[in-house]
Computed example of a mutant assay.
Amino acid sequence: MRSEDTAMRRFIVLLASLLTLLSATALAAPPATTTAAPAATVIKGPEINPQELHIALSSLLLAATKMAIEDAIKRGKAPDSNAAAHVGEPDYLTSNEISSITVHKGGVLQVHFTSAVSPDLTGVWLTPTRAGDSVKWSCISHDIPQITDVESYCSYQPKAH
């Protein structure tokens, strides 16, 4: 098979996946609201807009970046930079909710948010793990204690001082 055919097939698969994700995101209900824990156990974090955080973490921009990482991992080597992942530079990967996406060693993504999400520009780390023929993602925030209330696949892990 010619490399142009392979590239075209990848493009078609990527486009179909993005369209599926876009339609699923557009039809998805906003994140459920939760009842606050008793005051004694509430961890005070930065002020965030949960709906904008949900939009950022389910955005087409982030999904496309994750797909580029997944493709590289499936071909045998996790990228260690935006250039190696064949995605735009960090400050080019932006939206109303995302101020940058940076690819680090092992394909780990660092996502910084705009003030639409939080005036403190908090962020998350998305870590890929190969699981057979697929790639699974975990999401960690070091500064948004309420992240699991917005996205159940994310966890809060404060940095050790």
Rank of each mutant, 00 (worst) to 15 (best):
Leu53Thr: 02
Trp125Ala: 14
Leu57Arg: 02
Gly132Gln: 02
Ser58Tyr: 09
Leu18Lys: 12
Leu22Tyr: 12
Ile48Lys: 02
Glu97Ser: 02
Ala40Trp: 05
Val103Trp: 06
Ala116Arg: 04
Glu97Pro: 05
Leu62Glu: 03
Gln157Leu: 13
Ile12Cys: 02
Ile140Asp: 10
Pro79Thr: 02
Ile147Tyr: 00
His86Cys: 06
Val111Cys: 00
Thr129Ala: 12
Ile144Lys: 07
Ala29Phe: 04
Pro90Arg: 03
Ala7Phe: 04
Ile55Leu: 08
Ser99Lys: 14
Leu53Glu: 05
Asp71Asn: 10
Ala36Asn: 11
Glu97Trp: 03
Ser118His: 01
Tyr92Thr: 13
Thr65Phe: 07
Thr127Asn: 07
Ala32Thr: 12
Val13Phe: 14
Lys105Asn: 08
Ala131Ser: 15
Ala26Trp: 03
Leu126Glu: 07
Ala28Cys: 05
Arg10His: 12
Asp149Leu: 04
Leu121Asn: 14
Gly107His: 11
Asp5Trp: 10
Leu121Met: 09
His86Asp: 15
Ala160Asp: 06
Ser58Phe: 08
Gly45Pro: 07
Met67Asn: 15
Leu60Arg: 12
Pro31Ile: 02
Ser138Glu: 03
Pro128Gly: 04
Pro50His: 06
Ile140Gln: 13
Pro119Met: 10
Leu126Tyr: 12
Asn82Leu: 04
Glu89Phe: 01
Ala64Cys: 07
Asp149Ser: 11
Cys154Lys: 10
Gln51Pro: 05
Thr41Pro: 01
Gly132Val: 12
His104Ala: 05
Glu151Trp: 15
Ile69Asn: 06
Thr20Lys: 01
Ser138Ile: 01
Thr34Gln: 14
Gly107Glu: 05
Thr65Lys: 03
Asp80Pro: 00
Leu109Thr: 05
Gly106Ile: 07
Val117Met: 01
Glu70Cys: 11
Val103Gln: 04
Ile147Arg: 01
Thr35Val: 15
Pro38Gln: 03
Lys44Asp: 04
Ala116Pro: 09
Ser100Cys: 05
Pro158Lys: 08
Ala63Ile: 15
Ser115Thr: 13
Lys77Ser: 13
Ser23Leu: 04
Ala131Ile: 15
Met67Gln: 13
Asp71Glu: 15
Ile147Cys: 02
Asp80Ser: 13
Phe113Asp: 08
Ser138Asn: 13
Ser58Leu: 05
Leu121Asp: 07
His54Val: 08
Leu18Cys: 08
Thr127Val: 11
Leu121His: 08
Thr41Ser: 13
Lys44Trp: 03
Ala56Thr: 03
Ile43Arg: 04
Pro119Asn: 08
Ile12Arg: 11
Ala26Pro: 00
Pro158Val: 06
Lys105Phe: 00
Leu109His: 00
Pro145Val: 09
Gln110Arg: 05
Ala63Asp: 14
Glu4Gly: 15
Gly45Phe: 05
Ala32Gln: 14
Ile101Val: 10
Pro90His: 09
Gly76Ala: 04
Thr127Asp: 10
Met1Arg: 07
Ser59Asn: 00
Ala68His: 14
Gln146Leu: 09
Ala63Ser: 11
Trp137His: 04
